[in-house]
Simulated scan of single mutants.
Amino acid sequence: MIAAESSTPLPADWRDIFALTKPRVMSLVVFTALCGLLASRAPIDPVLGFTAILCIALGAGASGALNQWYEADLDAKMKRTAKRPLPDGRMDRTTALHFGVGLAGFSVVLLGLATNWLAAAILAFSIFFYAVVYTVWLKPNTPQNIVIGGAAGAFPPLLGWAAATGDVTLLPALLFMIIFLWTPPHFWALALFVKTDYAAAGVPMLPVTAGARATRAQIMLYSVALAASAVAPWVLGLTGIIYGAAAVALNAIFFALAWRVWRNTATDAAQMQPEKKLFGFSILYLFILFAALVADRLLLA
């Protein structure tokens, strides 16, 4: 996986460093972590709260940088990642590695000092899980990489809650489970219409190893599990009607889109509009669901 370093200076700038952190992914991490912090309803100094969210964002950025450092050769083989700083030759890999490791260490230590060491330990584990367990072990070796690896992206609300309270209770555990079960249908919808990229790079994503039909069936199954986990906080009395109504409505739409994906028989990416719609809505789904959670917890306290 490690390519030879360039002997000439590379024209990297701050935008390339920023791109290493996967800012689009980071935006979702920041949002769900903030929702976890606010949903805890714990009194926390605004400066410390801001520091906690900043540390979680930096930890996510470190994970992204380490992922891109390790996968630079793989990224070069796929159209949607070939223009990233490393495969495009705008940055050397040593710089990316040092940036990722340094950012990881800084974010964990600062979070521990600013809030508590439980939150810092969870952040450290989440970075390790994404950079090592998912990137190095799961992704290149099993079509279930997204299922197990989905845990890496599910930590932010747990982190926000732990940073504010110093503990982990049932509600943040359910928030973790929502994102964990959301990840497979979200990512497999994308993988269906970029399957050729993964096949060319030799990544054993489910659409490549099991085919489109099996992947669509799995999307349906996980959509049902997601709906159950999403309404659980309301059913268990941990949230009120604002969250409950949003969870029911959002999951009805999600299930309807997943049903269209399951019914689709297209194998050509140009005909996979149901998959593209599900992927697009899945992002909106998570933002609205977590926003409803915060509104519910703060307004109905």
Rank of each mutant, 00 (worst) to 15 (best):
E5S: 12
S6Q: 09
S6Y: 03
P9F: 00
L10T: 03
D13R: 14
R15Y: 13
D16I: 05
P23W: 04
M26S: 14
S27K: 06
V29P: 02
T32D: 07
T32Y: 00
L38T: 01
R41A: 13
A42E: 02
P43H: 06
I44A: 08
D45W: 00
D45Q: 00
V47G: 10
V47Q: 13
G49R: 01
I53W: 06
L54D: 07
A60C: 14
G64Y: 03
E71L: 11
D73V: 15
K77A: 14
R80Q: 14
T81S: 12
R84N: 03
P85K: 10
P87L: 08
D88S: 15
T94Y: 09
L110G: 10
L111H: 09
L111I: 12
G112C: 10
N116I: 03
L118S: 09
A124S: 11
S126T: 10
F128N: 13
Y130F: 13
V136Y: 03
N141I: 07
P143G: 15
P143E: 15
Q144H: 06
P156G: 15
P157Q: 15
G160R: 00
T165R: 01
T165E: 03
G166F: 04
D167T: 11
T169F: 01
T169R: 08
I178A: 08
F180W: 11
W182I: 04
P185G: 11
W188A: 02
W188R: 01
L190G: 11
A191T: 09
D197M: 07
V203I: 10
V203S: 00
M205W: 05
A210E: 05
A212R: 02
R213V: 13
A214G: 05
T215W: 04
M220H: 12
Y222H: 15
V224T: 13
A225Q: 09
S229P: 04
V235K: 02
G237S: 08
I241C: 00
Y243N: 05
A246E: 06
A247Y: 05
A249D: 10
L250C: 03
A252F: 10
F254E: 08
R260G: 00
V261W: 06
W262H: 05
T265G: 10
T265W: 00
A266T: 14
A269L: 07
A270H: 03
A270P: 00
A270R: 04
Q271L: 14
M272N: 11
S282I: 08
L286D: 07
L289W: 02
F290Y: 01
L298Y: 02
L299V: 10
